[in-house]
Amino acid sequence: MSGRRGGPEEFVEAENAEAIILRIEQKSRKIETLLRQSRPVEALKTALEGSAPKTMDERCKSANWIVVHRAIMAIKDVDGMLFSLDPEYYDILMKYLYRGLSTGDRPTCDQCLQIHEKLTQRAGLGCILRCLADTENTV
């Protein structure tokens, strides 16, 4: 927890940034394969897994967001996705939905809002609160 509560202007480079980026690149390739096989839920799970929220390195966070964004945008059947997504992914998915909403990009926001509605029905307001209250494990 070295870069705890660093301001947004503060640039923190993770010591293992290269390793993280490398892992994200591998993840990205795996996701592309899964998407080609029409397994969007598997792709989303892969994207959310090991998303290293504790690092303060914005470069790593952005790299992972690109991967998660790719997986989120590939979701067509939101109900089906949430049905097969394990509850342990709910909190981290919610965080990425808020990141998506903060981009202001129209198609991204449309998709994130749609998932947000369904996810809130399923995971409750507690999930939103955990996302908003957590200032340390940000995505």
Binding site: K54, P87, E88, Y90, D91, R122, G124, N137
Partner: peptide
């Protein structure tokens, strides 16, 4: 951190 599992009741319609 991040090790908590969810005790989200009822997977069906809440």
């Amino acid at each position: 951190y991040g090790q908590s599992k969810h005790s989200i009741a009822n997977d069906g319609i809440e």
